[in-house]
Amino acid sequence: MITTTRRTALSMFAATALGLVAGAALTPAAQAADAIKIGILSLTSHSPSIIAEGKGYFDEQDLDVEFVSFQAAQPMAVAIASGDIDFGMTAISGGLISLAEKGAVRIIGGALQETPEIEGQKILVSKAAHDAGVTSPDKLAGRSFGVTTQGSSFHYMAHKIADKAGFDRSELKITPMQKVPAVIAALKSGQIDAWSIVPNIAGALTKGPEVVEIGKISDYIDNYQVTTVFTSTRNVTDNRELVTRFLAGLSKGIDDYNAAFVDKTMGADDVAAITGMVHQYVYADQPIDKAGPRIAAGAMRINSGARLNVASVEDQLKWFQSEKLAPEGVTMEDLVDTSFVEAY
């Protein structure tokens, strides 16, 4: 008798505990109307929102901004889904699409964009591979290609190179290394043959003898929309006005970023001021005179007004689905809300 009740109590307890865990994840994060949290990575490409905050563009929109730093793009998407942050800016990844399918996040604008006139992402090979004859991306068949994780933008780029170069995607040995530093180490030591990366990192690598540049991503992917701006579906449906204000503030930050680092049409003093703002979050562990050139080096264009290249996003979605890295049922409508910015 006693044991039976005890057993039922135990299972009830377990069920309650499970409910609590699930419930906790469901509870929306409490937020005041105008306080927003923006997820950033310590990369130059994330400076527009830093500049917008520094120059008071968000204040103009009556937004109280808090930055939350992340080590990788993937957790940022998850943090949006969990309600820990409101806005983020990263490459389209399998995780982002999966969360969109679950109705948690939505792409609302475009950011980093490959354009022919600006230096873009580079295709690199190790010295050993180069010596073995891999002197152009067409010769990558049968070689290993470093990625952070399966379904990352690196994975997409690798397959797009294969498609354009005319060999089978399976002939590239995709090698997950989890983190960018690990990919760099593996490339330098010749444990992987190839990789693709933004110009400032590529530039630093090719200065050394271990890594050789063999091509540009823009030759293989047309108008590649590298990163996008995204927020939670809840914001898109219930808080449209907040999203609009955020994008307005961000757009002014983007304009300053392009003027300072990409088009270089800004005065030196203004550039220095902006570099100072960015330095608080990017290369913060180095002194400003060292960090400054690094921040400016190889900055890629960010679409003004957060314009979004829908064609590129659609191509990426199709690729994810063809590789079974995203659920088949996801549509562009699930993934993107094109009503906030200019889409083309």
Partner: peptide, 20 residues
């Protein structure tokens, strides 16, 4: 975690990265 195409661990890590 590192350089594994197949394996239960690699599968779990990939699922995590894809949020599957």
């Amino acid at each position: 975690m590192i350089g594994a195409e197949f394996g239960i661990g690699a599968y779990i890590l990939m699922a995590g990265a894809l949020f599957a």
